[in-house]
Simulated scan of single mutants.
Amino acid sequence: MSLKEQLLYELIKNRGKSMSGQQLAEQFHVSRTAIWKTIRTLKEEGHLIQAGQNRGYTLLSNSDVLNVPAIAPLLLPPLNATFLTVVSQCSCTNDCIKQLAIQSAPAGTCFLADTQTNGRGRQGRSFYSPPGGLYLSMLLRPSLPMYKSTFLTIAAAVAVCRAVKKICNISLEIKWVNDLFLNGKKVGGILTEAVTDLEGGTFEYAIVGIGLNIFFREPIPNELTSVVTSLYNTEPDEAIRCKLAAAILNELYQLEQNPSSSLEEYQALNFVPGKTIQIISGIRTGTAKALSITERGQLLVEYPDHTQITLNSGEIQIMDIV
């Protein structure tokens, strides 16, 4: 472990407390100059560290840069620091973790970023991923058959809702099949991708990507203001993102061991049943009424001619949500 990582672990463990440069130098068997240089590097990376002559170094309570030392101690076994890769910026966390999957990375491997330059949603749509959000992907090697693939997304949606409630005390809703909503606006989304064995009808691996708007550090594009929101209007007073990242990863890994077990909770959190919807893509487009979420996670709908069908996938729009 590098001096930077060791020092960051120590500062996080003593968050809000002042630690003298001499004390840290003795603890890590380096010079005070080495400590000072490392602190400078951490501050350049965005960590909020208060420093001053004869005052030592203090990691402030609202310092919330995504980093392994802050996330790893909060993970539940078998997840640990070796499963984590955290970067300030990447093209797309799903694409990055795909490279690790090709290199035989184990199930539970996670890739997190502070921002994405080419975030991607379903059907190749762009996913707005500015700084201040939480963007992560987990590699899975599920043993379930391919026809149950929807349950991977279902479990991920429930995992995020559980984690947000636990850490932020905020209740989210789910829009079938993969969108997370808060107060009638989209606050996050899930993208599940997989490489399959067509002959065996099984997965080689699957990747669950999650994007969640925590707060916006800068104004969002005008075209998104009516449809997109964040968990917080301004930056929280305390560090939230690392705690939330760990909570999501813990819930996600546990639920994905038996993804179909989250169906009942998914159904309860889903606000689509009972709504009039516009089916934009799928086996039959047009206006219909959403009736229920089936035992396979499909959406049962009824058209004006009373024809009922189940949607396995596709794009829908709630009529009173633009």
Rank of each mutant, 00 (worst) to 15 (best):
M1W: 00
K4P: 03
E5N: 08
I12W: 13
K17C: 04
G21P: 14
Q23H: 13
L24G: 10
A25L: 05
H29L: 09
S31K: 03
I35A: 02
K37G: 00
K37W: 03
E44S: 11
E44Q: 14
E45Q: 15
H47V: 00
L48C: 02
Q53L: 11
N54P: 08
R55N: 08
S61K: 14
L66M: 08
V68I: 15
P69T: 02
P73V: 03
L74H: 06
L75E: 05
P78F: 09
A81T: 04
L84A: 05
C90S: 14
S91M: 07
N94F: 13
I97Q: 09
Q99C: 06
A101G: 13
P106W: 01
G108N: 09
T109S: 15
T117Q: 07
T117F: 04
R122K: 12
Q123Y: 14
G124H: 09
Y128W: 13
P131T: 03
G132W: 11
G133H: 08
L134Q: 08
Y135P: 12
L136Q: 13
M138G: 08
L140D: 08
P142A: 02
S143C: 08
S143N: 13
K148Q: 15
L152A: 09
A155S: 15
A156H: 12
V158H: 12
A159T: 14
A163S: 15
K165I: 06
K166E: 15
C168T: 06
C168L: 05
E173S: 15
E173T: 15
E173K: 14
V177R: 08
V177Q: 11
D179N: 10
L182M: 10
G184C: 09
K186E: 08
K186F: 11
K186M: 06
G189V: 04
G189Q: 06
I190A: 03
T192K: 05
E193G: 09
E193N: 11
E193I: 02
V195Q: 14
L198C: 07
E199Q: 14
G211A: 11
L212N: 10
N213Q: 09
F215I: 02
F215Q: 06
E218N: 12
P219R: 05
N222A: 14
S226G: 07
T229N: 07
S230Y: 11
S230W: 11
T234W: 03
P236D: 04
D237V: 05
D237H: 13
A239P: 15
I240R: 05
C242K: 06
A245W: 11
Y253V: 03
S260K: 05
L263S: 00
N270L: 00
V272R: 00
G274Y: 04
G274Q: 02
T276C: 01
T276M: 01
G286M: 00
L299W: 01
Y303P: 12
D305L: 01
T307L: 14
T310F: 00
L311P: 12
N312T: 01
S313R: 03
E315Y: 05
